[in-house]
Design a protein around this nucleic acid. Structure first.
Lengths: 234, 234
DNA sequence: ATGACCAAGTGATCTGATCATTTTCATTTC
DNA sequence: GAAATGAAAATGATCAGATCACTTGGTCAT
C-alpha cells in the first residue's frame, strides 16, 4: 500500500520521469532550452546518478529531452507529442515501404483539404520557402537535401491543417526512412515533376480550393506509390 | 576513428541498442519471449551493468523490451513498430481531445473501406468477439472494460485493412487517453447506440460494401466527436 | 495433493570514483 | 585591439562492486 486510492503500481522510474516532465512544464521550458545537470537532478530527487540517468534515457527515447556530452541536458524536439515515429525502427522492407506510402496516400489528401480551408498565412510562407529551397537543391544536385526538403513540404502542409495530431501523424509516417525513399526516388528520377506537383498543391491551398488540393495531393502520392511499387515488385 | 567506412557518429549506447535488437532478431524472438539477463548482457557486450541498463531503458521506452523485476528481460509488445503512441504523453487537454477525434474521423473511415474490400475472415471473427464482449460488459455495468473493448474494436477494424502501418496509426491515436474518452462518453452515456453502430459497421465490412463501411464509420466518429465537442466547449 | 517456506536467479538501486567532451575565460600573440 | 591559444571548470559517460527487493521454482510438512 502507498498513498490513498488509485493506482499504486508505479515504479520509482515512472515517478522520476513524470516528475522531471512536470519540472520542465513548471519552468515553462520548451524545445532547445537547457534543463538541469544530471548530478543536480540526482540531488533534487534524492536518488543516485545511474538511476536518474535511466529515467533520462527513457525521456530521451521519446524525444522529450536530449543529453549532450560535456554540455548538459536539454529539452528535446518532441516534448509533449502524442504520436511518434519509432526512433529505433528497423529499415523497412519493400513491402513495408509500399504500406507506408499507401497510408500516406490515404491520410494526406484529406489533410490537404483541411489546410486549404484554413489558408494559414504562416504555413503558406513556410511551404513557399520549401519549394524555393527545393528548386535550388535540384539545381545544385544535392539529392539528399532535396529528399529532406520534399518531406518538409509535406509536413508543413499537414501543419497547415491546424490539427496538431494530424501533423504529428504525417510527421511520423514521413520521417521514417527518408533515406530509403530517396534511393527509390532516384530510380524514378523525375524531380522536376515532383516540384511542379508540389507547386500545384500549394496553389490550390492558397486559393482555398479544398477539393482540388485533396485531388492533387492524392494524385501526387499515388504517382510516387506507383513508382515505389514498380521498384518493390519488379 | 572506429571501423571501416561508414557513419562513425554513433555513440556506445546506440551501438548497444541496435546490437541488442539484432540479437533479438537473430534469435527469432517475438513479443513475450524471454530475452537475456542484464548481467549476462553486460558480460556479452563487455560493458558495466548501469550502461547496459541505460540502453535497455531506451529500448523499453519504445516497447521493444520489457524489464520485469525479479523475473528477467522480455521482448516487448511493440517491437518492430514504425509508429507509436508516446508512452509519456501528458493527459490531453479538451482541445487536444477534439483534435484527436477529428484525426480519427478523418483517418478511420477510409481504413474501414479498405477492410471491407479485404474481408479478412480472422479480423471479422475478432470483431465479432469484441462486440459480444461489449454486450456483456454493458450488461454487467463495467464501463472501464467497455471503453477498452470499444477501442479494441476500432483497432481490429484497422488491422482488417491489411495495412500494418495504418493499423499502427489507428492503434496510436486510439490508445491515448482511453480514460479520458471514457469519462466523456459517460456524459454521452448512449452505450447501446455505440454498440449498434459498431454492429452496422461490421456488417458492412462483412458484406464487402466499402462505401457503406466508410460512411457508417464516419457517421459514428462524427457522432462521438459532436458529443466531445459539446463537453469541451459548454 | 495442498500449502507454507526457503533459496537461487534476477532486476533495482546505491556509492563513489575516473574518463571524455564541451564551454568558459584568462593569457598570449600578432 | 583582435584573434589564437590553452588551462580550468562544468558536465555527461562509464566503470566497478556491493546490497536490496521481487519472482520463481522446488522442498517439505501437513
Amino acid at each position: 500500500m502507498s498513498t490513498s486510492g488509485g493506482v499504486v503500481r508505479r515504479s520509482l522510474l515512472d515517478d522520476l520521469a513524470t516528475s522531471m516532465l512536470a519540472l520542465i512544464a513548471d519552468r515553462r521550458l520548451s524545445s532547445g532550452d537547457q534543463f538541469e545537470s544530471v548530478r543536480s537532478l540526482a540531488d533534487r530527487f534524492k536518488v543516485a546518478v545511474p538511476t536518474i540517468r535511466e529515467a533520462l534515457r527513457r525521456l530521451e527515447a521519446t524525444g522529450a529531452v536530449e543529453l549532450r556530452h560535456g554540455s548538459g541536458v536539454y529539452v528535446g524536439q518532441h516534448i509533449g507529442r502524442l504520436i511518434l515515429a519509432n526512433p529505433l525502427a528497423p529499415t523497412p522492407s519493400g513491402d513495408r515501404l509500399v504500406e507506408l506510402l499507401q497510408a500516406r496516400a490515404l491520410i494526406e489528401p484529406p489533410v490537404a483539404a483541411l489546410a486549404a480551408r484554413l489558408r494559414s498565412e504562416d504555413a503558406l510562407e513556410r511551404m513557399d520557402g520549401h519549394l524555393a529551397a527545393a528548386e535550388e537543391l535540384i539545381a545544385s544536385g544535392d539529392h539528399a537535401g532535396l529528399a529532406e526538403v520534399n518531406m518538409a513540404f509535406h509536413r508543413s502542409l499537414a501543419q497547415a491543417s491546424g490539427n496538431a495530431t494530424l501533423a504529428e501523424v504525417v510527421e511520423s509516417v514521413t520521417v521514417v526512412n527518408v533515406r530509403e525513399q530517396l534511393e527509390i526516388l532516384h530510380i524514378h528520377g523525375d524531380r522536376q515533376t515532383d516540384l511542379q506537383e508540389h507547386r500545384a498543391i500549394l496553389e490550390a491551398v492558397r486559393a482555398g480550393d479544398a477539393e482540388l488540393a485533396e485531388r492533387l495531393t492524392r494524385e501526387h502520392l499515388d504517382g510516387v506509390l506507383a513508382v515505389i511499387e514498380r521498384a518493390a515488385h519488379p
